[in-house]
Nucleic acid binder design. Structure first.
Ligand code: MN
Ligand code: MN
Length: 412
DNA sequence: GTGGTCC
DNA sequence: GGACCACAACGCTGC
DNA sequence: GCAGCG
């Protein structure tokens, strides 16, 4: 028996509020060996900056009650039993439903949220005081597979140019995964529809200025090896991991605000729960000035009028309401796990070496799908780079996991 | 992670 | 007191 | 209804 037994709970005094942390010694990140209390202490060490990103905004809770290895669940409605230093805001949806979400405003709120099992914080782009008018436009740069950091950076700087041309200021941060977020503070004067239109317009303009490097196309098979400018992240009821959020990845990466002159030379993997507190103590928060000068969307909305409606892909009609793809796609397998999906793809490539040799990385589409109650994976191949005569046909699936197995279907 | 039930 | 269980999300935007 | 997002 070692002398250090795992404590059941500890109580912290955080800015005059007592916060209970249960199972403080529970290991949340096995690889770097970070415990729940380590995560609490991380957030407290960067609390002012983390609150600049997530404070005062309603947020969705993503809870990892059993560590990052186990499945997490989302929680919109704040637990009834919340301390009085937790604020709330009630969001109303188009269908008439609503959800009372948590709003944190101080370091105690951060500690309390982490105790629930939350790692990344996912606030809406609105303040609790005005739930219908976002004060933040979010540029979400999502690299397709095979895209390297320098290309992401090139796209980020094109986005910065476009912002500059319409009189806006962008504040970059690593997403904490492979991509980059650029935040734009705006006056809370436009509704979600207009903010999304502005974001879509910016995305189209970035694609126009950097064809091949960036895309604003929604359908994955049409994107190629490019950086997707995910303008839909600005629709209502969408959230983004906020600045200084800990991401549920093995190395405990942090979504880290950067100075523009750091963007090209730094890498997402440099910033973790272990490294970011020292950086913050050293240089402070690169986003400290984000609230100083809220911008206007007039320029982007004018550009939207100039560009006109976006070109839509040809209307696909196969009768069933399903979209007809514009690309020569074949489905290879459906599997329960990602390794099985990758194995199926490998098997297919071994069976079709000639075609496989001509695939580009972005032509291999392995997507996590939401089934009736679980996750499954779909494996597809885009044969656009394979000459028509050499294209393998759609065959029986190599693996055919049924995500609805076990469900009873009324009337069939 | 929390709160309720049942022995 | 301890074991066990239920519960904790789902909306938006096109096609 | 479905895809594709978080
Ligand atoms: Mn992203
Ligand atoms: Mn995205």
């Amino acid at each position: 028996m070692s002398g250090v037994s795992a404590r059941k709970e500890v109580f912290l005094d955080v800015g005059g509020h007592e916060v209970r942390i249960s199972s403080p010694d529970k290991v949340v990140f096995p690889e770097p060996g970070l415990t729940k209390l380590d995560i609490v202490e991380y957030y407290l060490s960067v609390s002012d900056a983390a609150l600049r990103g997530a404070g005062g905004r309603p947020m969705v809770l993503k809870r990892f009650v059993k560590g990052i290895a186990e499945e997490a669940f989302f929680q919109k409605r704040v637990p009834e039993n919340h301390p009085d230093f937790i604020d709330t805001a009630t969001l109303h949806y188009a269908r008439g439903t609503s959800a009372e979400e948590a709003v944190i405003r101080d370091a105690a709120g951060l500690a309390w949220i982490v105790n629930l099992g939350c790692l990344d914080l996912n606030p809406h782009p609105v303040r609790a005081e005005d739930l219908d008018h976002p004060d933040e436009l979010r540029i979400d740069l999502d690299p397709m597979p095979g895209v390297d950091w320098s290309q992401i950076v090139d796209v980020a700087f094109v986005a910065r140019e476009v912002l500059d041309d319409v009189g806006l200021v962008g504040w970059p941060k690593t997403s904490g995964s492979r991509g980059l977020h650029i935040l734009v503070r705006i006056a809370p004067r436009w509704d979600f529809r207009d903010v999304r239109l502005a974001a879509e317009t910016l995305a189209r303009e970035v694609e126009n200025r950097a064809p091949g490097l960036a895309t604003a196309r929604w359908w994955k098979e049409e994107r190629g090896e490019s950086v997707f400018v995910d303008f839909n992240q600005n629709a209502k009821d969408r959230t983004v991991a906020s600045a200084y959020s800990v991401r549920p990845l093995p190395d405990a990466r942090v979504s880290t605000p950067l100075e523009w002159d750091e963007v090209r030379v730094r890498r997402p993997e440099e910033f973790t729960v272990r490294t970011v507190p020292a950086r913050y103590a050293d240089i402070g928060d690169p986003h400290e000035g984000i609230d100083a000068a809220p911008g206007t969307l007039d320029g982007l909305l004018q550009l939207a009028a100039d560009l006109g409606p976006a070109e839509k892909p040809p209307r696909g009609t196969d009768g069933s309401g399903r979209r007809a793809s514009t690309m020569p796609l074949i489905e290879i397998a459906r599997t329960k796990t990602k390794p099985e999906a990758v194995a199926a793809l490998t098997q297919w490539k071994a069976q079709h070496p000639a075609a496989a040799a001509q695939l580009h990385p972005a032509d291999e589409l392995v997507d996590g799908m939401r089934g009736s109650s679980s996750l499954w994976y779909r494996v597809r191949v885009n044969l656009q780079h394979v000459p028509e005569a050499e294209r393998p046909p759609q065959e029986k699936l190599l693996a055919d996991y049924d995500p609805w197995a076990g469900k009873t279907w009324p009337g069939r």
